[in-house]
Design a protein around this nucleic acid. Structure first.
Lengths: 222, 222
DNA sequence: CTAACATTCAATTAATCCATTGATTGATCT
DNA sequence: AGATCAATCAATGGATTAATTGAATGTTAG
C-alpha cells in the first residue's frame, strides 16, 4: 500500500492484472467459464493440489474476478460476471497476436505473392450457412480446443498432405489461423494450391472472428 | 517455458497480464496513452530512474503492448494499438467496481431510501447538450484527472458544503462516481437535498459511461 | 457428541521479480 | 577519432510469490 493516492489506485488495477498473471489461475478461470464448480472439482480438472487450488481461488476472489458461496460442506466458486470473460478474451487476443507476429517476422514472410484475395468474414459466414466451403483451422490443437469456427477441421501443416485425398475438390477451401500475421494459413493455402485445389485464406484470424461476436465452438477440455 | 503445449499457451497469456501487473508499468502506459515518448521523458514523468524505466519498457515491449523505434539517439516507445488501451480500460473498470463494492458493503448502504430515481445516461447526454444541468464528479481527484464527463466539476464529499453557495439553485444537479455500488454520489445527493437543492444520481458511474463509448475528458497529468 | 469430509490456514522452501548501481553500447556532433 | 548523450546491460540484495506439507476450521451425517 502506498501513501500516494494516485499510486495506490494503480496498485488496485495491478492487483486485478496480477490475478490473471499466473497460468494456474488462467486454467481455473477457463474451467469456471464453463460454470460454477467446487474446489475439489477444480483441483482435479487442473491437476493442482487442493490446497494450492484453494489459495489460487482466494486470490481470484480478492481480485473480484470470481465470487464464492457455501453450499453444504462445499464451497462453490463462479465468475463474478461477463467482464471477467472479457478480460480473458482480451488477453487471448493480445497474446495470440504476439505469437503470430513473432512467427511472421521470424519467417520473413511477405504477403505479396501470387496469393488470391482473402475471404472476408462476412462472406465466410454466409457460405458456412449454405455449406459451400470446407474450413480448415491451422492452429495448434490446444488453441483449437479452446475455441474454433463451427465446422472447422483442425489440422497442422505437417499433416496437411495426408488430409489431401479426403478433401472434396469441388468445394472451395478456406484456411485460417491466429490472425493477419500468422503464417500457418498462408502456407496451407500455398500448399493446397500447389495440389490444384481451390483455396483461400480467411481475412484476419480467429481472434478477429470472435471479436466481431461471431459464433465459436468450444470443447470442454479434459 | 513448459513442455506442455496447453500450458505454454497459457503462459503466453500470463505474460501479457504480468506486463500490466506492476503500478510502474501502468504509469508508463498512462503516459504512452498520450502519445509516443522517449525513455528519458517517461522516466521523468513517472519519477523512475532511467535504467529502471528502460527495463519496464522492455518488459512492455516483450509483452507486445508497446513497440519501439530508434530516432537518432533516442528510442521512442509507443502503444502498439488501441487494444492496449482496451486492456487498461478493462482493468480500470474491474478494479473500480471492486473498490466501489467494498465501500458499499463496508458502509452497509441500501438503495431503498427516499432517494429519487437516478438519471439515465441517455438523459444526461441530452441535458449536457442543452446545458440544463450541473454535473458533479464525486470521485477522488486522481481518478477525475484520468477521465471524467466533460463539464463535470470534481469535488469530494468533505468539501461539498463549501461549494453549496456557488451552485446554481435553478439547475438540477447530477452527481456520479465510480459505479452503481459507489457511495460517494449517494451521499452527495442526500447532502444536496438536505440543503434544498434538486439533485439526482447518474445511473451507473464513469466506467459505465465510458463503456458505452460516450465522450470523456482527460487531463494530461504533471 | 463423534466421525468424515471439504476447505482453509500456517509455515517452509525455491523461484521470481523489482530497484539500484555502475559499466557498456550505439548514435551524433565537432 | 574523441567527446557527449541516450539507452541498455549485468550484477546485486531485498521483497514477493508459488508450491508443498501438515494442522485447523467448519459442515453434515450417524
Amino acid at each position: 500500500m502506498s501513501t500516494n493516492p494516485k499510486l495506490s489506485l494503480l496498485e488496485e488495477y495491478a492487483l486485478v492484472a496480477r490475478a490473471v498473471s499466473a497460468p494456474a489461475r488462467l486454467m481455473l478461470l477457463e474451467q469456471l467459464a464453463q460454470g460454477p464448480r467446487g474446489v475439489e472439482g477444480l483441483a482435479e480438472k487442473t491437476s493442482l493440489t487442493v490446497a494450492n487450488c484453494s489459495q489460487h481461488l482466494q486470490q481470484l476472489r480478492r481480485s473480484g474476478l470470481v465470487t464464492s458461496r457455501r453450499e453444504g460442506k462445499a464451497v462453490i466458486y463462479q465468475l463474478t460476471d461477463a467482464k471477467t470473460l472479457d478480460l480473458m478474451d482480451l488477453l487471448r487476443l493480445l497474446a495470440e497476436r504476439n505469437l503470430a507476429r513473432v512467427e511472421h517476422i521470424l519467417r520473413g514472410l511477405s504477403d505479396g505473392e501470387d496469393a488470391p484475395e482473402p475471404l472476408s468474414r462476412d462472406e465466410l459466414a454466409a457460405r458456412l450457412a449454405d455449406g459451400s466451403v470446407t474450413v480448415l483451422d491451422m492452429r495448434p490443437v490446444d488453441e483449437y480446443e479452446l475455441a474454433h469456427i463451427p465446422g472447422a477441421l483442425n489440422i497442422n501443416l505437417a499433416d496437411l498432405e495426408q488430409l489431401l485425398p479426403s478433401l472434396d475438390a469441388s468445394k472451395e477451401i478456406v484456411a485460417y489461423c491466429r490472425g493477419p500475421y500468422c503464417v500457418y494459413s498462408h502456407q496451407a493455402v500455398a500448399a493446397l494450391r500447389r495440389h490444384g485445389l481451390i483455396a483461400r485464406r480467411l481475412e484476419g484470424g480467429l481472434p478477429e472472428w470472435r471479436e466481431e461476436g461471431r459464433e465459436v465452438k468450444t470443447i470442454s477440455w479434459d
